[in-house]
Design a protein around this nucleic acid. Structure first.
Lengths: 177, 177
DNA sequence: TTGACAAGACCGTCCAGCCGGTACAGTAAG
DNA sequence: CTTACTGTACCGGCTGGACGGTCTTGTCAA
């Protein structure tokens, strides 16, 4: 029963995210991930020799996906600012009711240092935005508001209604100029 | 050496927060909390019959502290808006380099439903702010930006410098009117 | 045949919750 | 006063189960 062509890595990563989302970040065990991915535990450990490596894979995957999406947005919109692209991308990410990143809590529980690459990424993005934005105050407000939106999505807090989120986004775009 | 009246509950709660902050949210074990609080495991279990109850205690403590602090701010400043009080309170909370609430990750790992009271609290606060703020767009931007600030503090992300945070706060206060 | 890859039984560790104690305070009958 | 009983606060060893990681044994593709 061996899948001749199985890109197991991606399946496992996706399965891990699913398990964290559905069973809760505290229930992300290797056994659960393996069975969810349709893979044996040995198979999982073959691809990710340790749980920490799995978490690392999750983080790297997340970051590279995000970067790709942001670059695509920034390119497709032509001469639009990166900040606008970031706002719109985040709005879309938060629109779908998937708090798709609750695996992050598992990673933090495993080792808070898994946040380091994410922090670095954000810092880098912030610096990039500073380079293209005239008014630092406006940038700060926008950047933090987006952060807040993402955070609420992560924590699965649907405090805002659909309309409110749309109003928020348009307000931010206005501030961003 | 029976302490006739030691308010063990508070000591335990504080110890739990300390352990989560220093050893990481994944290392919050009952043994660690007990020894940190200067209490035996049995004593801990006497006050909090289960780990879930301990988490619940943490959440309730956090929420009531926050509410008290907010009320105090709103009262002391006289006729200032609640939104301004909320902004300033959050700014002060985030100023000290203590990501004092990393126990929250442990709670989420234990059971994501521990977030429910927090979500409810935020929702309630948001409704209250809506009642006193004229421009919904401005309120949304401020509210989310504060959320972002708190989130960054929680994740121990020091992306913003001291000056930037001050500028952010003053910008928010201006928007809040 | 060989080696990349997968299966799952197995082992050691860790931890939540349990349980049988201990120390002490209050109370009240003798 | 004292003895006996009751309830409170706390102690710490124990255990059963879960989980991460290893090991042995396949199995398919080239």
């Amino acid at each position: 029963m061996r899948a001749p062509r199985a890109n197991s890595r991606e399946k496992i990563l996706a399965a891990a995210a699913d398990v964290a989302r559905e069973a809760g970040p505290g229930s992300l065990s290797l056994d659960a991930v393996a069975s969810r991915a349709g893979v044996s535990k040995g198979g999982l450990l073959y691809n990710f020799p340790t749980k920490a490596k799995l978490m690392q894979g999750l983080v790297e995957n997340y970051l590279s996906d995000f970067q790709k999406a942001l670059e695509a947005r920034a390119a497709e919109a032509g001469h639009e600012s990166v900040l606008s692209a970031y706002i719109k991308l985040s709005a879309d990410d938060c629109e779908r009711p998937k708090p798709s990143a609750s695996w992050m809590f598992s990673a933090i529980a495993e080792d808070p240092d898994f946040l380091t690459p994410i922090k670095a990424f954000k810092h880098q993005l912030f610096e990039r935005l500073k380079g293209e934005t005239a008014d630092l105050g406006s940038l700060l407000v926008c950047f933090l508001a987006i952060e807040g939106m993402r955070s609420m999505n992560l924590f699965d807090s649907d405090v805002l209604s659909e309309d409110e989120r749309k109003l928020l986004v348009s307000s931010l775009l206005k501030i961003a100029g």
